[in-house]
Design a protein around this nucleic acid. Structure first.
Length: 438
RNA sequence: GGAGAGGUGGCCGAGUGGUUGAUGGCACCUGCCUCGAAAGCAGGCAUACCUUCACGGGUAUCGGGGGUUCGAAUCCCCCCCUCUCCGCCA
């Protein structure tokens, strides 16, 4: 959420910004509602001042000898009338705020100056590449073939027990997912200074509002029936909201935390996209990185967090590139986002495996995340940054496709072998068949 | 799920209808003292909104929401959360 006063003073800029994001801003009502609201508040508060003064006088009279003077009854009667007037005005204020706030909540964050202007992912700017896509002496397979043939991925079984966009991993496939997560957590906690958190996977609506998923993106989420609980779409939600309504000591900044959690997305509106394989799932696992930063440091911290995520890909020796999302592709709450895209030989394309965003104070304002700093001891809104470090399911895909061998086996990256009991290669096992085929 | 106790400022903790936005302590800031520091002393120190060029003024906020009243941290109702005991349970 942007600052109300900022929007008021920069309405034209805000509308222009929304157009750069490819939106069609409808802020015409804003100015009038805002002015009306302020006028109502002024009237109401003036009346309240009258009432308070009258009440004080009643108290003074009642304490003294004039306890029963007619003046008291007179004051009480007139104040009661004022009270009714106030109630009317306050009702109007509530009503107008009920229309104003949703409007404010649908205004996205302001992209940083350095964000490329554009309308779609085609306008994203590639910043750098790392690693060289491997040359294959054979036609590399896609993970949905490789995984099924190796008996480590069972999509039919997933359809039977849950439905489309779910996966069942078996044997070395399940172990590979766990190894990747452990490796990522260990690297981030031991070398990058993050503290590991194990948060709830279900959160309340207040938390979803705090990080911006609600009210605008309810359709993308799963909600538990008859409760106020939602399945997290990313650990960003519980991790960032750990600091909701908290005043952090300035010396503690930046806060660096990480968590490995399941993530749940309804993927509404993504019909027809990535239907093959397990690129896009209703449930997947992700190691998330979150930094809560001092405003003066957040741009640097965003770069740092991105490098922390890149370090995983480098350690796994997976080729990737870094792109800066353009204004049209930028997420609602983000001021700037770097996507890490890993090379997938089975698809002959770079595909997103991490998204690292700086939200500035946009989330902090909603979630009320502050720090106390300086000699004045004043509080100010902190900045929040997060990124995947990495999406474990997609890393699993990248390992399979990049490390596949001509005989259909998959080599295990060196750094993962200790996490897989020394296993060096995943080979098809005759015994491993789809449970759904009985 | 049942019974009881409680939720007050960054933290601790007073306060049961009328100068209580809220005693006191801790933490923090400033000044005095000191060669310097500690201790001591004096002062300051919540947030949001409205208003003002500014100084300032005003309103609201004592878990959340509603109600009673001229007036609510204080009384009533609903909800949330924490703690203790019981029940259940991985």
């Amino acid at each position: 959420m942007l600052d109300l006063a900022y929007v008021r003073d920069h309405l034209d800029d805000v509308e222009a910004m929304m157009r750069r994001r490819g939106m069609n801003p409808e802020l015409s009502e804003f100015r009038q509602m805002d002015a009306e609201r302020r006028e109502l508040i002024r009237c109401s508060e003036a009346l309240k001042q009258n009432r308070n003064q009258a009440s004080e006088e009643v108290a003074r009279l009642k304490r003294g000898a004039e306890r029963d003077s007619p003046r008291v009854a007179e004051l009480i009667a007139s104040t009661r009338a004022i009270g009714e007037e106030i109630a009317g005005l306050d009702g109007q204020i509530k009503e107008i705020e009920a229309r104003l706030e949703p409007l404010l909540l649908t205004i996205p964050n302001i992209p940083q100056e350095s964000v490329p202007v554009g309308t779609s992912e085609k306008d994203n700017a590639e910043l750098r590449r790392w690693g060289q896509p491997r040359g294959f002496a054979f036609e590399p397979k896609a993970h949905w073939d490789l995984g099924v043939e190796l008996g480590i991925l069972d999509l039919e079984a997933a359809v039977k027990i849950s439905g489309a966009r779910f996966a069942v991993y078996r044997g070395a496939g399940a172990a590979l997912e766990r190894a990747l997560a452990n490796f990522m957590l260990d690297l981030h906690t031991r070398q990058h200074g993050y503290t590991e958190i194990l948060p709830p996977a279900l959160v309340n609506s207040k938390s979803m509002r705090g990080t911006g998923q609600l009210p605008k993106f309810a359709a993308d989420l799963f909600q538990c029936k008859d409760t106020d609980l939602w399945l997290i779409p990313t650990a960003e939600v519980p991790l960032t909201n750990l600091y909701a309504d908290v005043v952090i000591d300035e010396a503690q900044l930046p806060v660096n935390i990480t968590a490995w959690t399941p993530c749940f997305r309804s993927e509404a509106g993504s019909y027809g996209k990535d239907v093959r394989g397990i690129i896009r799932q209703h449930q997947f696992q992700k190691v998330e990185l979150v930094k809560i930063s001092h405003p003066s440091q957040s741009l640097d911290d965003h770069e740092r967090l991105t490098r922390d995520a890149e370090a995983i890909l480098q350690a796994l020796e997976l080729p990737y590139r870094v792109v800066s999302l353009c204004t049209g592709d930028l997420g609602f709450s983000s001021s700037k986002t770097y996507d890490l895209e890993v090379w997938l030989p089975g698809q002959n394309a770079y595909r997103e495996i991490s998204s690292c965003s700086n939200f500035l104070d946009f989330q902090a304002r909603r979630a009320n995340i502050r720090f106390r700093g300086g000699s004045k001891g004043k509080t100010a809104l902190a900045h929040t940054i997060n990124g995947s470090g990495l999406a474990v399911g997609r890393t699993w895909i990248a390992v399979l496709e990049n490390y596949q061998q001509e005989d259909g086996s998959v080599l295990i990256p060196e750094v993962l072998r200790p996490y897989m009991g020394g296993l060096e290669r995943i080979v098809a096992e005759q015994q491993t068949r789809s449970a759904s085929k009985g």
